[in-house]
């Protein structure tokens, strides 16, 4: 055993680099595996693209003719509008719901909890159909005194269009999810920030608006962006209540000319475009948030820096005071 060890260490000694090692140039290690994986991946992707491009069922010519069809483009704008308005409605509801859930008042907490519980439980499609048929529940809507006289009223069917019903359903549903994102983002702001704001005499409204919210929003933007992108595709459900969005428009076209696959491809291309734009907006927003720094900019810095009262000699003088042991003699 011991002899084995000895011989091995002798071998190791012969492997030891000589003096000349210090002067040798460095050559990068060959990464054969890396390039092999890259080659195989590219090959697979190329095969997939080729098979799709040459696939007769795809009918790329038909895709080309309908890509900029006016009905399709109108549908795409409806999809964008639905996404934007639903998200705005969702956030308008989500902020108070999130605050209710964080409130010191137990009743508000319960209200917030019930909202989230309800709207996360009910399927979006059910919500959509209920809102579309809201006239069945409340045939007329008006202003007046509850159980008293009504001043103005109108038929619900005329007041609430299919588009309104869609925005209401999508917004109310998303509000439940968004409020959870906001709630956790607010809670994620460091406790020390609250302490500092309170100690400076800020009331809770000022503290929330000026200190907590700006930091919480920064935390909330990636998950809210994620939800917005999810919303783009949730809007496709409005086909059930005949809102002429992107998917519904392509459906109406293929129902008359039976070119199902190409029209679904047209719709998908536009969904990809919308999501890509949103992704870019999200990353710009994130970058802007990282850089933005609210400032009170008035360029009187140089003047004061020159006349600084700070003097290193005066500061830290206590350090030169004799330690406790010696001090007993000089007191």
């Amino acid at each position: 055993m011991i002899r084995d060890l000895v011989t091995r260490s002798e071998q190791a000694a012969t492997d030891r680099p000589g003096e000349e090692a210090w002067t040798l140039p460095i050559r990068p290690r060959r990464r054969i595996g890396y390039w092999l994986v890259a080659l195989v991946t590219c090959l697979c992707i190329a095969l997939l693209i080729a098979s799709l491009a040459t696939n007769k069922a795809m009918q790329w010519g038909v895709v080309g003719t309908y890509l900029f069809n006016s009905q399709i483009l109108h549908g795409a704008t409806i999809t964008c509008e639905l996404t934007v308005f639903s998200m705005i409605l969702a956030e308008l509801i989500a902020v108070p719901i999130a605050l209710f859930r964080l409130s010191g008042n137990a009743f508000l907490r319960v209200v917030g909890y019930l909202y989230v519980w309800m709207f996360r439980s009910i399927p979006l499609l059910v919500l959509l159909i209920v809102w579309f048929n809201i006239g069945l529940f409340y045939p007329r809507i008006g202003f007046g005194i509850p159980y008293g006289p009504v001043f103005v009223s109108a038929s619900t069917k005329q007041l609430v269009t299919a588009l309104d019903a869609a925005v209401a359903a999508l917004g109310l549903n998303e509000a439940a999810y968004s409020s959870e994102i906001l709630r956790t983002s607010i809670r994620a702001v460091a406790a020390g920030q609250r302490d500092a704001a309170k100690a400076l005499g800020m009331r809770s409204t000022v503290m929330f608006r000026r200190i907590i919210l700006p930091q919480a929003v920064k935390i909330a933007i990636p998950p809210l962006g994620n939800d917005t992108i999810g919303m783009v595709k949730s809007t496709a459900l409005v086909a059930f209540i005949a809102v002429p969005d992107l998917l519904y428009s392509s459906q109406t076209i293929y129902e008359s000319n039976y070119e199902v696959v190409p029209l679904l491809i047209v719709a998908s291309i536009w969904y990809i475009v919308i999501v890509t734009v949103l992704t870019i907006i999200q990353s710009l927003l994130e970058r802007w948030m990282d850089r933005s720094m609210r400032s009170a900019a008035r360029p009187n810095v140089a003047k004061l820096a020159a006349g600084s009262l700070h003097s290193r000699e005066a500061f830290g003088a206590w350090r030169t005071v004799p330690g406790l042991g010696e001090s007993e003699t000089d007191t």
Binding site: A190, D195, A196, I211, M293, R294
Partner: peptide, 9 residues
Amino acid sequence: NLFPHLTVL
């Protein structure tokens, strides 16, 4: 506990 989203001033 400085406010990280605000400048020093």
